[in-house]
């Protein structure tokens, strides 16, 4: 991601105070914090996974959060969707999300959309973002988001969970595989509802937020061409090397992309 040509906004004295525990992190500092303040991140769905990504990015001081999530809060959301509350049952999820995040960090700008990523909004929402975090449960949305981020050459953090397992990688167009290299079509066996604990989606949500922070600030080494998978049942962590599919219909040679 190239933020180098951008004039990063200065930090106020309040912001220097709010972020004082992370400013001394090696490789971050005021320059990194100003990059976060000047960045826009799109989070596709703010449910079990995305709500934790949004909380962490808001707490870290990402200047503009673009959040897309449709529907109303349901009782079955509450085991993992940490931005939802019992008091918000039956109300639009996105309203609760916006209020909770504004309460946490009122210094940020929010663009909250009460619908999921779809053909009608994907171009505009990805266009507004410097980086995207894919947290949606449906592969139609994930593959659509992948296609648009590849077209617009925007990085995308890809996170997922199942049962006590989770996985994470970061796609950068032209440098790494894309989602369609790994999952070229909607998997026929995938079911919208699946078993998971909130602590599992929360764990990978925190790591996905850190991936976005690393890509924005240039700190550390994001999971580029590497695919982290782990199982909290036995605390086993594995990092696989992944590669671009030359026949990928989205980013491969035959797709016509660069």
């Amino acid at each position: 991601m190239n933020l180098e040509d951008r004039n990063f906004p200065p930090l106020s004295s309040k912001e220097l105070d709010v972020y004082s525990w992370q400013l001394p992190v090696p490789g971050h500092g005021e320059e990194g914090q100003r990059k976060l303040k000047g960045a826009s991140v799109l989070i596709s769905r703010v449910g079990g996974l995305g709500s934790v990504v949004a909380l962490e990015l808001a707490a870290a001081g990402v200047g503009r959060l673009i959040l897309a999530h449709g529907g109303d809060v349901k009782p079955s959301d509450l085991n993992r969707q940490l931005l939802m509350t019992d008091a918000s049952l039956g109300k639009p999820r996105i309203e609760t999300v916006e209020q909770r995040l504004r309460d946490l960090n009122p210094r940020l700008e929010f663009h909250c959309v009460g619908e999921n990523i779809n053909q009608g909004n994907v171009e505009e929402l990805v266009g507004e973002a410097d980086i995207v975090v894919d947290c949606a449960p449906l592969f139609e949305e994930r593959l659509l988001l992948n296609q648009e981020t590849q077209r617009k050459k925007k990085p995308m953090v890809e996170a997922a969970m199942y049962e006590l397992q989770a996985q994470l990688t970061t796609f950068i167009p032209g440098q790494t595989p894309c989602l369609a290299c790994l999952t070229p079509i909607k998997p026929p066996a995938w079911k919208r509802r699946f078993p998971v604990f909130g602590a599992v989606s929360g764990s990978v949500g925190c790591m996905a937020a850190m991936e976005a922070i690393k890509v924005i600030t240039g700190m550390g080494e994001p999971l580029l061409g590497r695919f982290l998978t782990y199982d909290l049942r036995d605390m086993s962590f594995t990092t696989l090397k992944i590669q671009q599919n030359p026949d990928c219909s989205v980013c491969g040679v035959s797709s016509g992309s660069e």
Binding site: G48, A159, S201, L240
Partner: peptide
């Protein structure tokens, strides 16, 4: 990663990891 469509010969002691796609939610 082994690209789908390839069928490599395996060595003694190899570890195979197999994963079906998962998502958020």
């Amino acid at each position: 990663q082994v690209p789908i469509g390839t069928d490599p010969s395996l060595s003694d002691g190899a570890t195979l990891v197999l994963m079906a796609p998962i998502a958020g939610g």
